[in-house]
Write a protein that binds this DNA or RNA. Sequence first.
DNA 1: AAATTCCACAACCGCTTTTCT
DNA 2: GAGAAAAGCGGTTGTGGAATT
Length: 320
Amino acid sequence: MGRIPCCEKVGLKKGPWTSEEDKKLVAYVEKHGHRNWRSVPAKAGLERCGKSCRLRWINYLKPDIKRGNFTMEEDHTIIQLHALLGNKWSIIAAHLPKRTDNEIKNYWNTNVKKRLIRMGLDPITHKPIKTNTFEAYGGGHGQSEDNINMNHMAQWESARIEAEARGSVFQAGSHSSHQPQLILSKIPTQPCFSSSDSLSTKRNTVYNMYALVLATNHDPVLPVSTLSIPYWQTPSPVSTNIGRFTDTGSSLSYEENVNITETSCQTQKIIEDYMLNSQDDDIMVAVEAFRTTRCESIQELFRGSNDVEGPNNDSFERNV
DNA sequence: AAATTCCACAACCGCTTTTCT
DNA sequence: GAGAAAAGCGGTTGTGGAATT
């Protein structure tokens, strides 16, 4: 478009903001608002570009911003939503009240990403590195599905155990009234797959996706979080019972045929439908199929959350 | 104690999307 | 509807403090 970026104007200051500049910006915005950021610096007496002022306000000065360590629940939500959405920081931030997308992005890059790598998980796919890549899922590369499944589950369990051992890292703020619990411990250890099940590979993937979806649907107030997951019986390919894993802190117990939330039912249905209808074995197609349905699932998650104001549908559709 | 490395986070940059005229 | 401006977004970089050598 040939526009000159505002920050390239001569004489505008760059770099860290001083407390004086912060005061000027806060005073101006609180008094006049910020309808037009380009005009803000001049009116506020700042030698900054409007874009810089906007970012400073949004990411740092806005009064309802929560700063400091991320709680276990926030960490949990970030991991699960990232597994579903990828680097959609603004959408993830919409589900974390008072956190900015920039803060979440930084937290991801400096903390969570490294943690996943240490655990042998791909920070993009959230799946074990090497032995369980999508290529491996595609089959025909020398590794049996059974081995893949075993590796996959072993990796998840390994990650969960390591996370448990590293409890302090996941620990909620010191004000938390309940025992520090581990995000990954809330992902069930393993569904009962038969090694003879020809769909087990695909199921494992869908299972993990489903676990991740549902993991965002817990009640953060409860001292002991529970989550509902499907229990895929084998060898029957599509028959399901609805069960619930309960994290007691020291162990996971499983309860069959419990009531689950409407959201969980809907998500489960999406996945069941996929499993019923899909005829192809290409895991990439499976993933894509899941992606195309995830929008609805996540909107349901937002709708189902009473304490969090989710993004409106318009902006959501725009960004997904 | 000084130098170096590591880490977290604020800020910038470039691109895309939305809004305005 | 077209073009320009503003806002939004995500990747990347720069900086300062902490930890290590």
